[in-house]
Write a protein that binds this DNA or RNA. Structure first.
Lengths: 199, 199
DNA sequence: GTCTATAGAAGGATAGAC
DNA sequence: GTCTATCCTTCTATAGAC
C-alpha cells in the first residue's frame, strides 16, 4: 500500500521471464517448453529465473494466471452487458482468432500436467467465466423472447463453449482454419433457428 | 499373399512395442512420452525398438495409425446405416467415454508436433470420417423430414463433432466428466428442437 | 537480484555382439 | 531380431560468487 505496489510486480526481469513463458506455452505447450527456452527468449539468466520462481511448474502457473487475467479482460469487452444478449454471443463466436495456434489457455488441455490441480486452476477459471457469461446472455435472450427453445440454457452455454474449443481442435488437427469456421457457422445457424422460433 | 501376411505384422515384439506406445500416447501425450517409457512398459529392448522403428516420431505415427483404424471400426458400428439417422447421432453423442482421458486421438491436438503433417495424418483422417458420417446422417434426416432446419448440414456436422471434442477439453480442464456431459446435453436438446420442428 | 559454474538424471539414438 | 553397452545432448535444478 504505502509503497504503491501493483499486482503485477515492478521487477522488469521477472516480467520479461513471464512474457517469454506466456509466448512459449502458447507456441509449444508445457511439456515441450524448457526453462532454458525461457532464458534464451527472455534474455534472463538462470539465477533470475530460479530466484523469482521455484521451478518450471511454478513458472507456468504464474504465466497461466496472467494469461487468464488478460483473456478474461478481453471477454469482459465482448460480453459487454450493454449489448443485446444475442449480439454478445455472436461477437464471441465471431471474434478474430488464430485458429491454428489454438486457444491460448485450453490448448494445454491435453498436457499430462493437467492432472495437477494447480496447473489447471487458471485455465478452468477462464473457461468458467466464459460459460457463465454465455449463460447470462442466453437467460436474458430467453426472458426477452429473443430466442425460443425448450433446451436448458446451461446445457446450451456449455455446448457453445465446447463448439469454440472443439473448433480449435479441428483446425489444428486438419491444419486448416476453415474447419473451425465451419463449426462456428453451425452454432451461428442454430442460434438463428432459435431466434426465428422466437419471432 | 503367398505367405499369408497381415496388415498388422505378426512380429510379437513389434506388436508389444506398438501396444505400449498406444497406451502411453493416450496417457501422457507425445512430448511427455519417451522411448525409454515404451521399452519399460513393453518389456522390449532398445535394439528391438530401433530395429522396427526409425525413432520416436516414426513410432508415434505407426501407433496413431493403428489407433485411428481401431476407432474408425468402432465408429462404423455406431453409425450403422441400418439405424435411423437421428439414432446414429444420438448413439454417437451418448457413447460411453472416459472424459478425463480425453479423445484417444484428438487429445494430441495441442502437441507442438501437430505442425508436422505426418504426425497429424491419422488423427485428421479419423475426425474426418466421423464428420462425414454425421453429415450423411443429417442429410438423410433432412431428406426424410425427421428434422427441419434452415441450417447447412455441413456446418451442423462440424458443430456436433466440435461439441464432442470440445466436451473432452472442458472435462479435462475442470477435471470433471460432468462438464462434457452438459455440453453433449446441449447438442442433444438442439437436435430434439430440430426434430420437433420436423413433426 | 543477477550471473556463471556445476551436476545428476533423463532423453534420444547408435554400435556391435549374439 | 534382440540384447547390452555406449554416447552426446538437453533438462531441471542447485551452489556460490558478485
Amino acid at each position: 500500500m504505502s509503497k504503491s505496489r501493483r499486482l503485477t510486480s515492478d521487477h522488469p526481469t521477472r516480467e520479461k521471464i513471464l512474457h517469454a513463458t506466456k509466448e512459449l506455452l502458447w507456441e509449444r505447450g508445457f511439456a515441450a517448453m524448457s526453462p532454458r527456452d525461457v532464458m534464451d527468449r527472455s534474455g534472463a539468466g538462470q539465477g533470475s529465473l530460479y530466484h523469482h520462481f521455484s521451478g518450471k511448474h511454478d513458472l507456468a502457473c504464474a504465466a497461466l494466471a496472467e494469461m487468464a487475467a488478460e483473456e478474461k479482460a478481453a471477454m469482459a469487452k465482448i460480453f459487454d452487458p450493454r449489448k443485446e444478449p444475442l449480439a454478445r454471443i455472436e461477437d464471441y463466436l465471431g471474434r478474430e482468432r488464430d485458429a491454428l495456434r489454438g486457444c491460448r489457455l485450453a490448448r494445454l488441455a491435453g498436457e499430462a500436467a493437467m492432472a495437477d490441480a494447480g496447473f489447471r486452476l487458471s485455465i478452468a477459471d477462464y473457461l468458467d467465466e466464459i460459460e457463465r457469461r454465455l449463460l447470462r446472455a442466453l437467460d436474458e435472450a430467453k426472458a426477452s423472447g429473443a430466442i425460443a427453445t425448450a433446451a436448458d440454457a446451461r446445457a446450451l452455454a456449455a455446448m457453445i463453449l465446447a463448439v469454440v474449443e472443439g473448433g480449435f481442435v479441428l483446425a489444428r488437427v486438419h491444419w486448416d482454419p476453415g474447419r473451425m469456421t465451419r463449426a462456428l457457422d453451425g452454432a451461428r445457424e442454430i442460434l438463428r433457428d432459435l431466434a426465428a422460433n422466437g419471432l
